Amino acid sequence: MREFLTPDRFANEIRQQRSTFNGSFLLLEGSTDKVFYERFTNCDECKLRVVSGKPSSKKIVIRVLEILDEDNFQGALGIVDADFDRCLSPLLDRSPNLILTDTHDLETLIIQSPALDKLLLEFGSEEKISNLDRDLRTILLQCSLSIGYLRWLSQLDELNLTFEGIEFKKFINEKTLKLNEIDLIRTVQNKSQCFTIKCEVIQQKIRDLTREDLDPWQVCCGHDLIEVLSLGLQKAIGSYDTKEVKRDVLERSLRLAYEAAYFLDTQIYISVREWENSNPGYIVWRIDLK
């Protein structure tokens, strides 16, 4: 099946297509990325390719580019989520044909934009939002920061913790949108069936990471921010039923609310334009996207 293709086979597919297509190839991690970037892409000059698989679609995109770079293949570019890469010091070396999202991932990039404000006009309660003691983006970041650091700790210490499917209401107050860190750790431990490290030890490790004073937009995962937003829209800033504001519903709505004008201000847009200038004859973005 296609989802289990190896990096070598993905690279071979692109090499083979070069015989019939002289334009650019834009490699992406997932189908939702393709839906997002397709709006800004000159599809006559650039083919979008979703490079997915295990253990990580991002790692496969990177490896495919490495293979093509080694062959001096021209016209292939990849865009992947930054994840925690900018939290590392020094930054990891990467191919000149690989571009990272401005923030942790595509979802955080969208939430940082006015698309969130447009979504709140549709879903949020103006009265409840006006009664908040802080900006909503600040609340979402503060509530998701411990989750982000726990995700990063899981990677750094190879804890293999499971976050998919955890119930956020087990550790976040639906009325105040405040997170209980101990409840978070216990929820993730129970989901992962990982009890080899004491909860208090994990909490201290999180504290050690927070001393780095990193940009929350690089630490927080967009899916977590949207899960918190979903909880908020049920009580704290809205009154919707859970099914009406599920994560996938909100993610789709945010993508639809995202305008081309917002994209022009991103480093992704600028970096791809610079790549086009450095690779004459290869075009990615629409010419009218200026």
Rank of each mutant, 00 (worst) to 15 (best):
D8F: 14
R9H: 11
I14Y: 03
R18K: 15
S19G: 04
F21Q: 05
L27F: 04
F40E: 11
C46N: 13
C46T: 11
L48F: 03
I60H: 05
V61P: 03
V61L: 02
D69P: 01
G75V: 11
L77H: 14
A82S: 10
C87W: 01
L100N: 03
L106Q: 05
L109V: 12
I110H: 06
L120I: 15
E122S: 13
E122K: 14
D133A: 06
R137W: 05
I139S: 02
C143M: 03
S144K: 01
I147A: 08
Y149F: 15
L150I: 10
N160P: 00
L161S: 12
I166T: 10
K170G: 06
N173W: 02
K178S: 09
E181I: 13
L184T: 09
N190Y: 12
K191P: 00
C194T: 07
V201S: 01
L214V: 13
D215E: 11
P216Q: 08
Q218H: 06
V219C: 02
C221W: 01
L225I: 15
G232D: 14
G238Q: 15
V245S: 02
V249K: 13
L250P: 08
E251P: 01
R252K: 14
L256H: 04
F263S: 10
L264S: 06
Y269R: 04
V272K: 04
E274T: 09
I283L: 12
